[in-house]
Computed example of a mutant assay.
Amino acid sequence: MLKNKYLKQWSCIVSKHLPNLSLPQAVGLATWSFGIALTKSSSLTQVSRLIATINHEKPNTVRQRLKEWYQEAEAKKGDKRSSIEVSSCFAPLLAWVISLLPAEQKQIALALDATSIGNKFTVLSINVLLAGSGIPIAWCIVKATEPGSWKGHWQKLISHLSGVIPAEWQVIVAGDRGLYAPWLYELIVSAGWHPLLRINHQGHLQIPPSTTWTQLAGVVNTPGQSRSAQVVCFKTHPSNVLFWHVGISVTKTLG
């Protein structure tokens, strides 16, 4: 039972915006996020101690409850235990973020990111870019040494968010050059979003109506210069793209 009124209020908010969660799951998430925000730490020990203090409970009782919250069903005590299907939270989480934006806002920026955790894991995530920060709204974790393409993972992540953002909104999707692939570009476009992906400067492009292939590195070669155009990119697998190229500095002219 929650005794702290602020924790109660936060639990109600979490349950309202993530209706896919059962009440115990929503309370668990609210307790974890409440404790993390106040302690500025995700340490199980620190969060347990804080919640125990403000909710008048024993630290070990809170610790066990918080630990069981993120465990698989078979690791929990009791007969009616279940695992949390994290992907079911992605769409409502994005809808929650959108609901907090100004009513007049009709655009949103997303970022695709791949972050390696040592040589063990890689976290693939889609984030809402807001006020200089990235808010993770969909993610999956793969083994760093896992062979094969990430295509299936990105397809699932994007499909979870399909239809959440109002159709009339402009959606910019940014990604680093390491994430570029023709299938990813097409996947973003098929979702009704606008790709803003970095590519290597060794490539070539055509600027219609010309059919001559021009080196990408030579299109912009002066610091501060910029250029945008609808072009055909890549000799091997030609694709119509909106090209945007900026000169940053003398030693690094590609942005």
Rank of each mutant, 00 (worst) to 15 (best):
L2N: 11
L2D: 11
K5L: 12
K5E: 09
K8Y: 12
Q9V: 02
C12E: 14
I13N: 04
V14H: 03
K16C: 15
L18S: 13
S22K: 05
P24V: 00
Q25C: 12
L29K: 01
L29R: 01
A30E: 08
S33W: 14
L38C: 11
K40I: 04
S43V: 12
Q46C: 04
Q46K: 02
V47T: 02
L50E: 11
I51C: 06
A52M: 03
T53F: 14
T53G: 08
T53A: 11
N55F: 13
H56L: 05
E57H: 09
K58M: 09
P59M: 02
N60T: 05
V62P: 00
V62G: 00
R63N: 13
E68C: 00
Q71L: 02
E72Q: 11
A73W: 06
A73H: 10
K77N: 12
G78D: 08
D79F: 15
K80M: 05
K80L: 13
K80P: 02
R81W: 13
S82F: 09
I84H: 07
E85R: 04
E85N: 07
V86P: 04
S87P: 15
S88R: 04
S88T: 00
F90G: 09
I98Q: 15
S99K: 15
L100N: 04
L100K: 06
P102F: 00
E104R: 02
A109D: 15
A111S: 04
L112S: 03
D113L: 10
A114Q: 03
T115H: 09
T115C: 13
T115G: 03
S116A: 10
I117S: 06
I117Y: 06
G118P: 06
G118E: 07
N119C: 11
F121D: 03
T122L: 00
S125F: 00
N127M: 07
N127S: 13
N127P: 00
G134L: 08
I137Q: 04
A138Q: 01
A144C: 00
G148N: 01
S149H: 05
S149Y: 02
W150T: 14
W150N: 09
H153C: 11
I158P: 14
L161H: 11
S162Y: 02
P166C: 11
A167L: 14
I172S: 11
L179D: 00
Y180W: 12
W183I: 05
Y185E: 01
Y185S: 03
E186H: 03
I188H: 10
A191K: 07
I199Q: 11
H204C: 10
T212I: 01
W213L: 06
A217R: 12
N221S: 09
G224A: 05
Q225D: 12
S226G: 12
S226K: 09
S228R: 06
S228C: 07
A229T: 14
V232Q: 02
W244R: 15
W244M: 02
H245I: 10
V246K: 15
I248E: 02
S249V: 15
S249F: 09
V250Q: 07
T251W: 04
G255F: 13
